[in-house]
Amino acid sequence: MITPAFELSQYPAFLILTTHVPCSRTSEFDLYIDGDDFKFYAEPYFLR
């Protein structure tokens, strides 16, 4: 698994996560958010 390049920004009411996953299709990814847990998977990239 490869950790994708990512950027994290924070505002008083929002948390913004930007990922860069070259050679990946947007129809082929999994995103999981539950409270403080965040998981992103798009083969071969994984971010937790």
Rank of each mutant, 00 (worst) to 15 (best):
Y11P: 00
A42P: 01
G35C: 06
H20P: 03
V21C: 15
R48L: 04
D36R: 07
R25F: 14
G35L: 10
L15P: 00
F40D: 02
L15F: 09
P44W: 03
I2M: 07
A13L: 14
P4M: 01
I2A: 09
E7Q: 12
F6E: 06
F40C: 01
Y45K: 06
S24I: 07
Y41I: 07
Y11N: 02
I33N: 02
T3E: 15
Y32I: 00
T18F: 05
T19I: 12
S9N: 11
T19H: 00
R25I: 13
P4D: 00
I33M: 12
F40E: 04
L17N: 04
E43G: 11
Y32C: 02
Q10N: 07
F29H: 05
P22I: 13
T18Q: 15
E28Y: 12
E7N: 12
M1V: 09
E28T: 11
E43V: 06
F6P: 01
T26G: 09
K39E: 14
I33P: 01
H20L: 12
A5E: 15
T18P: 05
M1Y: 10
F6Q: 07
F38L: 15
Y11E: 04
P12C: 09
K39F: 13
R48F: 09
E7W: 03
R25P: 06
T3D: 12
Q10F: 09
T3V: 15
T26V: 10
D34Y: 06
P4Y: 02
Q10L: 11
M1A: 12
S24R: 08
V21G: 02
F29P: 00
L31Q: 05
R25V: 12
F40Q: 00
T26L: 11
L47Y: 08
F6G: 04
A5H: 10
F6M: 05
E28S: 14
F14K: 14
D37I: 12
C23E: 10
Q10K: 15
D34E: 11
I16F: 07
A13W: 08
E7C: 06
P12M: 03
H20W: 09
T3Y: 14
A13C: 08
